[in-house]
Design a protein around this nucleic acid. Structure first.
Lengths: 345, 345
DNA sequence: TTGTACGCGTTATCAA
DNA sequence: TTGATAACGCGTACAA
């Protein structure tokens, strides 16, 4: 690793001159020396020491991306197609803007913050925060922050959330289900906070609007941990049979349920209609193809990164950006079956 | 961001003492001052500046992870479940060892190298390299490198490849197909290099061993770019009908083909048997559940990271690590249909 | 146009 | 047991 100092020595000139050439401060240096330095630079393949540069300039050109994993979900957060697509969008945008991406995953907000502030990253993108996580972060960390899909950011200043019309998405889908003739519609998720809560709210709203009464039983709470999943699926399938349609909080759960139901001899949509949310590869490749609520996840990542870059430049960005959803009608929601499920056994 | 210097000032002592307390050099400092410093440290929530630390110690604690995207595959490389699972394994291992992960994606080896050497990362994990990419990288970049799934690393020194028994995997699967009674078995992939070539070779080997003659037509070359995919799938389905079984190079293609065939009224496995390779969520969730060759992708990531960390510590690691595969027999490979496909129309 | 000298925050050396 | 001081490599204000 050759240093500026060494180069200056070899070339019999000052470090300032070399540095100036490197940074293309053309006016400050003669053509002659410029050429000489440039040649030597190429020859020895000089790469600056980032640590020294960052230390001197007090910036890092690094964007920190911190994912908070939920203990009960996926052992490997990146396996979630949603997460990887999101990161893909972020990475691409950051890279094109000349920044680097530091990826960090943890279940523990404290740990995340400790690590993140160790690296003096120029900005932060947070995903998976719940409750007052966001606030705790933003009081500790004074640089630009953009959150993705966070539903608890009231009253915080330098803080933008990139979210989705979650409520509207399920609202429209459930309304569509009702328009198909369904009256007994269950909702399935693994929790009732944040994004999931918003989607649930849309479901409730559509039911209410149609004069359908919601009972607590209509919420199917799946337990996705690998030890419990089989047992939980068994319960989900049993309970699902009381309904003619099932609104799932994600494509993953929708497809998982279709598989589980198929294994138990229940056909979709003949036995029960199912809708998902996300519109990812899981649902589009499955047969019957999944009727779902579309969101552009990559776009979400791009917007999040762009917003953060703006903030780093000092621009104001507002503190809520809502991306639209769109119904994707495919083959898993049809008219309800006539009678009980008994005909399917 | 409070610094050691400031702390030392406030506490009326030297930076050395503070630094010693931070690093737990217990013997060097009295209990009394140790306690005093520790208290203050907790109070102000001190976090070290990594740039300064790295500068002083001449290391970065960063592992670069460079993914080379193929132009014709996925616009968003991270959407590939394989890639995200791999990265998940790497990230976890790196993090637990106190390192950070820098993620960089590009199609251009030169660009990757330029970026990567700017960051003086302590080591490099490369994925997706083909041909002499690896060599070009390793001549320019003198620090530890670990490649994943690279098939062209002969004669390179500080270089370890973490691969898979690709050939053995398809060999055993095709052998299994043959044992089920299949004689007309096609192979499907989108290229014929690296990993795909190895898997193809296993297929050929199994055919030869059974005395089945391979014709060039038996290789179904899919074109996965989004513009061509529909047309290509049409062709794939048409050509697949000449066979009783299809060995796909990945679960993604296997499931894609099952969907496409289903859409055309061909049932799997009644109409045609299909096997995949990878054993990811796509195949396990699909119904009929996919018969496939299992590989532990997360483990691959873990091994790659562990190997790199060893190299960084100066240990020798050999230059080929081969992970095992395992047949996962589910529902998509059965006995061949009796006659032509006409009975299915 | 070029060079000197200092600061960035930390760790390490060596003297007190 | 503590403290001064010198590195680490780069950028830059200011002097020459």
């Amino acid at each position: 690793m050759i240093t500026i100092k060494e180069i200056a020595e070899k070339l019999q000139m000052s470090t300032t001159t070399v540095s100036n050439v490197i940074h293309g401060k053309a006016g400050e240096v003669s053509e002659e020396t410029k050429r000489k330095v440039q040649e030597f630079l190429d020859e020895v393949d000089y790469v600056p020491n980032i640590n020294a540069r960052n230390l001197a300039q007090n910036e890092s050109k690094i964007i920190g991306v911190a994912l908070k994993a939920r203990a009960d979900k996926y052992e490997n957060l990146l396996m979630d197609p949603f997460v990887s697509e999101l990161i893909g969008g972020i990475e691409e945008t950051i890279r094109n803007a000349g920044y680097f991406m530091m990826l960090y995953i943890s279940r523990d907000t404290e740990k995340i913050m400790r690590r993140v502030s160790t690296w003096n990253v120029d900005g932060l993108i947070l995903f998976g925060m719940i409750g007052d996580d966001g606030q705790r972060v933003s009081t500790k960390y004074k640089k630009p922050i953009v959150c993705v899909d966070t539903y608890s950011i009231e009253g915080i200043k330098h803080y933008t959330n990139v979210g989705l019309e979650d409520e509207k998405g399920t609202y429209e889908m459930v309304k569509y289900m009702i328009s198909c003739g369904h009256e007994r519609i269950a909702f399935m998720s693994d929790n009732r906070t944040g994004v999931d809560l918003a989607r649930f709210t849309g479901y409730i709203k559509a039911l209410e609007e149609a004069g359908i009464k919601y009972r607590e039983d209509d919420f199917l709470m799946i337990r996705p941990s690998s030890e419990e999943i089989e047992e939980s699926l068994e319960e989900m399938c049993r309970r699902a049979m009381d309904y003619t349609a099932l609104m799932c909080v994600s494509d993953l759960y929708a497809v998982t349920m279709m598989s589980a139901l198929t294994d138990r001899g229940i056909r979709v949509p003949e036995g029960i209609s199912i809708a998902g949310f996300d519109d990812n590869i899981l649902g589009s490749l499955y047969r019957p193809a999944l009727t779902t609520v579309h969101q552009d996840v990559k776009q979400k990542g791009i917007i999040a990164a762009e917003t953060l870059l703006k903030q780093i430049k000092g621009e104001e960005t507002g503190n809520q950006i809502m991306l639209p959803t769109r119904l994707v009608i495919r083959d898993t929601v049809t008219k309800p079956r006539k009678s009980g499920l008994s005909s399917f056994f």
